[in-house]
Every structure is written in C-alpha cells, then in structure tokens.
Simulated assay, not measured.
Amino acid sequence: MAARIEHLVTSGTFSLDGGTWDVDNNVWIVGDDDEVIVIDAAHDAEAIAAAVGGRTVRAIVCTHAHNDHIDAAPALAQRTGAPILLHPDDLPLWKQTHPDRSPDGELADGWVLAVAGVELTVLHTPGHAPGAVCLHAPALTALFSGDTLFAGGPGATGRSYSHFPTIVDSIRDRLLTLPGETVVHTGHGDATTVAAEAPHVQEWIDRGF
C-alpha cells in the first residue's frame, strides 16, 4: 500500500521562561501498513502508540525540542524501540525536559529519511528554536513544518532561544522556494500551503514583527 499521512491531535502544556500554557499539538504519522515515522511525539505516548498499532516505527523525529513536541518521545521510544532524532542545536532545550535521557541520533540539513518508499528531506530552519527542522516529502506534496511556519505566518519568536530575523530567513530561503502547492502540515492548528503563506510572511516582514 502507498505511503500516507495520518494525523493525531494530543493535548498538554508548553512551558518555557517560567510560563506554562495549555496547547493542542499535531502529531504526524507517515508511512504505510507496515512501517511509519512519527513526527513530534507530543504529550500522549499511549495515544500515539495506539494510532501506530502493530506497525514498525522507524524513527521518532523531533522538529524541535520545546517540551510540548518531545515530552512523550522517550516513552514512545521505549514502547516501540524506535530511535529519537533531533538536531543537535536543540540539545539545550531538550535537556530542560529530559535531563537524563539523550536523543538517539542527530538530524542534519539535507539528510534524507526513508519510510514506506517515500523520502523526507531534512531542512534546518532555525528561528523558532536553534535546531528547528522541517521535513519535505515531495512524493506526498507535503512539508512538515513543526512550529516554523503556520497558517498565517511564522512561528513565535518572543521567547528564549528564538530570533525573528532568523526564522524569516529560514522561511524565505528554505520553505517559500518549495512548490506552491506543497501542503504545510503544521505543529499546531490547521494545514496551509506554501503559496498561501508567501504573502503572509511578506506582511510580517513589512510590519517588522
């Protein structure tokens, strides 16, 4: 069976810089009836494992290391035997949530992850976090953007480890160059497309946010 994208929403909290907020996170499962990768193991390892079922999890990919995107990763890894992959620039954030458990492997710009006959290219897109990455799957006309790009503009940059000019450069140089019909599967909220977000990003640049 051809590879497909499955979507799960989990709920929990995001904490940074002394504040805590309730959040709903998108968890993306990419694969077929035999094998998958999980993108952003958020909040509920049991629910994610149930969605995976008996399939082999090839990797648990972290788009970045804010706690709401990684809090369930170790438990899911223990249940499935899958390695947790993270860009090394986000290790300081990772250690805030999991000081006694390191990721199992690194992500790097240009690396390709393969599952169910589909290739996902890692794009390093810092700004929301130093080690933020997106995953581009041309065969699925899909981009998994984490918190780098949302429907309506860039991800937040008002907290520690974030930088607005950097996220704008990442989006402009790495994401808006992708085909306009590419569907952007975000870390929170609704999906969008590259073409739909180009004017929104420009508006943010013009407003200086």
Rank of each mutant, 00 (worst) to 15 (best):
A65C: 12
E119S: 14
P126C: 06
G31T: 01
A116N: 05
T80M: 04
A82P: 00
P88M: 03
T177P: 11
A41M: 07
A191C: 12
T186F: 12
V52W: 09
E203S: 02
V57S: 10
S102F: 03
P103H: 07
H87T: 07
T20N: 01
D24G: 08
H200W: 07
V38Y: 11
R174T: 06
Q202T: 13
G12S: 05
A2R: 15
A47S: 13
N25F: 00
T182V: 11
K95W: 05
T63V: 05
I205M: 12
P88R: 12
G54W: 02
R172Y: 01
C134I: 10
G153Q: 01
H188P: 00
V27C: 13
V183S: 05
I39H: 11
D169G: 10
R101F: 02
R174L: 08
A73S: 13
V184T: 10
R55H: 09
P138G: 14
L178F: 14
D24F: 01
L93C: 06
A116F: 09
E203Q: 09
L16Q: 11
G189Y: 04
W21N: 03
T141N: 15
T186V: 12
A116W: 09
D44W: 00
S11W: 00
A132R: 03
A72F: 04
Q96S: 07
G18R: 03
I171V: 14
T13I: 11
I37M: 13
D34C: 06
V122R: 08
K95A: 15
R101M: 07
D89N: 11
H43W: 03
D44C: 10
H128T: 15
H163G: 09
T20G: 12
G153Y: 08
G54E: 12
H64E: 15
L91A: 07
T20L: 02
D44F: 01
D104A: 10
V118L: 06
H185C: 10
D32F: 05
Q202I: 00
D32Q: 08
D89F: 02
V52D: 12
V9H: 06
D33Y: 02
D147Q: 04
A3W: 00
W111D: 14
M1C: 11
G127S: 12
A82R: 03
V133F: 12
A45T: 02
S102T: 07
D33A: 15
G127M: 07
D34H: 13
T63R: 10
A137K: 03
M1F: 06
L178R: 07
L120T: 02
A137M: 07
L86G: 06
E106H: 13
I37A: 06
N26V: 04
L86K: 04
A45F: 06
D90A: 08
Y161S: 04
N25V: 00
A47R: 15
T157Y: 12
D147E: 14
V118D: 05
V201C: 05
H188D: 01
E203F: 01
T63G: 06
H87D: 15
G208F: 00
G53F: 02
T141W: 02
L120H: 09
A77S: 15
P103E: 01
V112C: 08
T177K: 11
T80L: 08
G18Y: 09
T56I: 13
